[in-house]
Amino acid sequence: MTGVEIVRRPARRSLLVPAVAGTAATTLVAAGSSAGALLCALGTVVLLAGVASARHGLVDGGGLVAFLGIVFAATNGATAGPVVFGTTATVVAWDAGGNAISIGRQLGNRVDSTRVEVVHAVAGAAVGLVTALVGLMLFRVGPTRQPVTTLFVLLLAAVLLVAALNR
């Protein structure tokens, strides 16, 4: 007697969040640099292929390529807004992709995981957006040069403190 075969891959709808986030990143970068946008699009495609075939390596690689697109755009004169939000979108795409694979591998593709994936994606996006907005605000409002480095170092210190407290 054979039961239901469990296909250990993410469901098709799990592709939605990475696809939307990846497209958003590409669109944002396209405003600054078309070569960067191309890299970003390529990374998104690889990432989606990784999600579809449940391979973490492809998702990581795709996310990295997409981010390199953003770095390329940033070093070629893209403004802060697109770079920061593009980064957030890339991270959301990569995070949602990895999460979808872990759910797919653990539970198979016939489980309705919409709720848990949406919660994960929304939380991830919120964190990225808040950080990006705070960063941008300080960047725009604060005096030139100093605050960004200071912000980075301050945030880093906070993270280390949190990590140390957690241990």
Binding site: I70, V71, A74, T75, A78, T79, A80, V83, V84, T87, T88, V91, A123, G124, V127, G128, V130, T131, A132, G135, L136, F139, V148, T149, L151, F152, L155, L156, A158, V159, V162
Partner: peptide, 17 residues
């Protein structure tokens, strides 16, 4: 590149998250 530095700030946000 200040935009790139800001992107790293976003990364720190995720690190904290």
């Amino acid at each position: 590149s200040r935009p790139l530095f800001l992107a790293a700030v976003v990364g720190v946000g995720y690190l904290a998250y």
